[in-house]
């Protein structure tokens, strides 16, 4: 009996200690990000573009805008496709073999190495086109986004009670109308959260952009050109020897981290509000 108690105490202590250790490391990283990032943030960052090391007028404007465009366009492609595909699985395919097969495949795609997707997109959308371009970067991000949106949509639509659909059918509504007006409405909060989380996920990706949207030292909104992004800028600046670039790298990390966390918090708040 005593032994049991002792083991119990030991295991509980070990669990608590490991939790504390894990949390310490994680908060250490978060603290680094916050303090380094906060120090480096200034209004200059939003006014000026990336510049050679040592210049006064140096910022991240081009990278921030580029990142927004890349993620925005990826979302424009990925969200509708993901939602439609998820709708198919939940409303049409249901438990059919094909639907389950697609579910399995998108689970695999969800965890596919992002750098491999970058290499794939390089071969398909950069090499044949003849220059690095923003479209390719967005496409790579969209490929990562679709399975996430697909799976959440599928799950969320499944939660909508069948009676709702049946009631609408009974009134003679065609299926697409039922889906668009009844089912989507019922699952709205869940889908929006899923979409937001998927945006947060792809916004932090660097590897798929290295060979696709590449980088640009200038401000551009042209998706046919190489396009700067916060992540690739972070990679280049953090591995450089220049103090001012490294600081800008931390500032970029801070902006990106805040964006990702912010989107996450909004996403969670939506679900909570719905539940409450």
């Amino acid at each position: 009996m005593r032994g049991r108690k002792a083991i119990n105490a030991l295991v509980l202590t070990l669990s608590t200690v490991s939790a504390v250790i894990g949390l310490i490391f994680l908060f250490w990283i978060l603290w680094t990000l916050a303090s380094k990032g906060f120090d480096a943030i200034s209004s200059k960052i939003f006014i000026y573009d990336t510049a050679p090391p040592g210049r006064e007028e140096s910022g991240l404007r081009n990278a921030i805008v580029g990142q927004l465009i890349l993620v925005g366009v990826a979302s424009g492609i990925g969200i509708p496709l993901g939602i439609l595909a998820g709708t198919y699985l939940s409303e049409y395919g249901k438990n059919s073999k094909f639907a389950n097969f697609i579910r399995d495949i998108s689970d695999i795609m969800m965890s596919a190495p992002s750098i491999v997707i970058g290499a794939f997109v390089y071969a398909v959308l950069v090499a044949p086109v003849g220059h690095f371009n923003g479209w390719a970067g967005s496409a790579a991000l969209a490929i990562m986004m679709i399975p996430i949106v697909l799976r959440t949509t599928d799950d969320m639509l499944n939660l909508v009670p069948t009676q709702l659909r049946e009631a609408a059918y009974a009134l003679g509504a065609p299926k697409y109308k039922v889906i668009l007006q009844i089912v989507y409405r019922g699952a709205k909060a869940g889908i929006i959260t899923g979409v937001l989380l998927s945006i947060a996920r792809i916004a932090g990706e660097t590897a798929p952009l290295l060979f696709t949207s590449f980088n640009n030292n200038f401000f551009t909104t042209d998706l046919n050109e190489a396009m700067p992004s916060l992540t690739v800028t972070m990679f280049n600046f953090a591995t450089s020897p220049y103090e001012d670039w490294i600081d800008l790298g931390w500032a970029a990390a801070f902006i990106l981290g805040s964006f990702v966390l912010g989107v996450n918090i909004i996403g969670r708040a939506i679900v909570k509000k719905k539940k409450g």
């Binding site: 994680l26 990283i29 932090g204 660097t206 591995t239 966390l261 996450n264």
Partner: peptide, 19 residues
């Protein structure tokens, strides 16, 4: 912890290099 899972991996890399 769920939020930390969302932090972009490149930030872990930067922390690793410098700290």
């Amino acid at each position: 912890i769920e939020m930390l899972a969302a932090i972009p991996s490149i930030i872990y890399g930067m922390w690793g290099l410098f700290y």
